[in-house]
Design a protein around this nucleic acid. Structure first.
Ligand SMILES: [Zn+2]
Ligand SMILES: [Zn+2]
Ligand SMILES: [Zn+2]
Ligand SMILES: [Zn+2]
Lengths: 121, 121
DNA sequence: GTAAACCTTGGAGTATGCTCCAAGGTCCAG
DNA sequence: CTGGACCTTGGAGCATACTCCAAGGTTTAC
């Protein structure tokens, strides 16, 4: 499919798709007139970008990750090490999020208590 | 304490501290010679910034949050709404992280299996 | 054949979050 | 009273991730 349809399907602008392409994402096939072509695999890549971004990874990190996700010529030991360190990082982020969630929950409870007290006076 | 000591204690550069100050963080007290002063409360703020950043919030979001964390003159209903939406966002992020963690784990398992197979051939 | 709706490139501009000067004032030790 | 370690300001520069625009080529529809 062409860039317009692709961009619509993955929910970002054509400019953003071209930008991701420059970074190194997507198969870089073109038709004779120079138009970019995208496949279903590129849709998966775009979904991975969205997931990665939503959890705070940079495009370069996501690119490295997406390349590790295509097990092929790569050095297995290195790929495994990298994947494991990514998993560890994710676990750390989950732990951080839970800490901040707890803080927010405590503040919410406190705010509710103060409000209840004010209303009863 | 002065900016150098403060920056060292929270583990960032003095430039970064001045930048956070411009954004609106920290008590803005100065001595007569113009030197910035920081307190233990500012240390807590710096810790909150570190937590917030590590989980992907922008400085402005963290600023808003840190202001909500000081329940005072604020509109309770609004503060509660905001805190609740922050908690919901955190829950979404945790869910996203778990999804990507699962992907990475699957790829890791797959990579290990491929490696084992290669070795046994 | 021409208009609309696509596509191309290059380059400029924006927001965030720093980072690094340069030029100068302050403070303290010897 | 001078050196070194602080501090100040302002402004430039940088990386990331877009976003927008201009100028122009392509395709399709009437
Ligand atoms: Zn195609
Ligand atoms: Zn309240
Ligand atoms: Zn002080
Ligand atoms: Zn492998």
């Amino acid at each position: 499919m062409l860039i317009g349809e692709f961009a619509k399907r993955v929910g970002v602008s054509t400019d953003t798709i071209r930008f991701y392409g420059k970074v190194g994402f997507f198969s870089s096939s073109r038709s004779e007139n120079g138009y970019r072509h995208y496949t279903e695999k590129d849709i998966e890549t775009a979904d991975l970008i969205a997931s990665g971004k939503s959890i705070g990874f940079s495009l370069r990190e996501i690119l490295a990750f997406s390349q590790e996700m295509t097990d092929g010529v790569l050095d297995h030991a290195r790929a495994q090490e990298s994947l494991q360190s990514k998993i560890n990082l994710i676990d750390e982020r989950i732990a951080s999020l839970k800490r901040v969630r707890k803080l927010a929950q405590q503040q919410l409870d406190y705010c509710r208590a103060v409000e209840a007290q004010e209303l009863s006076v």
